[in-house]
Design a protein around this nucleic acid. Sequence first.
DNA 1: CATTATTGATAGTATTACTATTATATTTGC
DNA 2: GCAAATATAATAGTAATACTATCAATAATG
Lengths: 227, 227
Amino acid sequence: MKNLLSNFKISINQNLFIKEPSSSELGKKIVSNSIEMIDEIGFENFTFRKLGLKIDSPEASIYRYFESKNQLLVYITSWYWGWMEYRLVLETANIDSAETRFEKAIALITTVNNDKLIIEGVEISKLHKIVISESSKSYLTKDVDKVNKEGAFHNYKQFVARLADIIKEINPSYKFPHMLLSTIIEGAHLQVFFAEHLPRLTNKQKSSNYITTFYTNLGLQSIKNSK
Amino acid sequence: MKNLLSNFKISINQNLFIKEPSSSELGKKIVSNSIEMIDEIGFENFTFRKLGLKIDSPEASIYRYFESKNQLLVYITSWYWGWMEYRLVLETANIDSAETRFEKAIALITTVNNDKLIIEGVEISKLHKIVISESSKSYLTKDVDKVNKEGAFHNYKQFVARLADIIKEINPSYKFPHMLLSTIIEGAHLQVFFAEHLPRLTNKQKSSNYITTFYTNLGLQSIKNSK
DNA sequence: CATTATTGATAGTATTACTATTATATTTGC
DNA sequence: GCAAATATAATAGTAATACTATCAATAATG
């Protein structure tokens, strides 16, 4: 994580907030503290009232940035996928072999890093934990179609699309790139959660990169051996 | 679904309810109507008050059966996995080949059936839709560990364990049966949801069984080609 | 037929998820 | 440097949620 572009900013669809959070101190505090708080107490227990108390601002002020806590969740997960796309581009730049790029990408998705990296005020490892245990709640709702139209999942889809292109390079006739990728991404997130809370639903290993290994093999086998 | 055992009843851990729902008319109405209602309006919008209005019983009476709507969700998903285990046993009985049994099992998990089958008052196709879009919310919470200890996920784990045994028969040295299975199960559920709401995250096909085919191949490849 | 368990009817509470209003700072444009 | 615009603070209020409590009416059971 050395060569960060200094003038780089992750772009988030305008519909995912009322007022641009990065445009003010309060906005930045809302985002960074909400990530910390959701990580600590979980999305269900998280409220704008509690966040207001934490950052010492009235609840009503937070509502000027986000119309609901769901919108905030969508915002921070979108930010995550924007960030991941940026990392993907960096990590796979100047590498000829599509297979190597695929491997790098899967490592990116499946690796849990605990170092205290802070980008744009966001503590990445905490954000990653939120994405693992909370992000599916942003689409598993009755208003998916509505928020989807507003661009809620654009960054996620774009990340998947970029990876699908790599798969197409490896095997142009492979028919299920998006299916494979959503399986790998959501699967890998689940394994991290299961390893901690429901070990009988996974196979935790001593080595730190067993999830990476598993999904890399699973993916490459499927891509290469399809008729 | 012909040869149902007439004296068969799916067993649910005692901790997952206050009063046995199958022991009374009201209890059965709570379960069957909640499934219908959660399917219609989603778990977030579902409340005991609304359910009470629907079944014309006071909210407080529902609280005598379930201590919260989360407990109810855990109950009905547990019921689902109990039912799935029952089907698994039936479908794989008297079949010698472990591989064929595995294929039957994956078909069971990945097939969406719309026929109006009702078992113990439960409309299976609606329950399946709930499991697809709501069940992960029953474990993706901060109190997973607590409810897990109470047996909330016992039926799910038992179903997975039974399938893991089949995998071990196919390849005794395969190291990731549970990981593979949770990937397939949760992945397959997601693909159904994505096909309807977020098509760019899957690869919908014309054939009705493409999800089955995909996950069967994915699974068997991984099981057989592992070192 | 009396006891016990179950449900209905009703009320009440703390919290949530917001919206509204007005006052006070702070920034910016001229 | 001052007015105008903008952002935030402070406070209040509302409908709904997620429960708990109480007591009467009814049904089941021994």
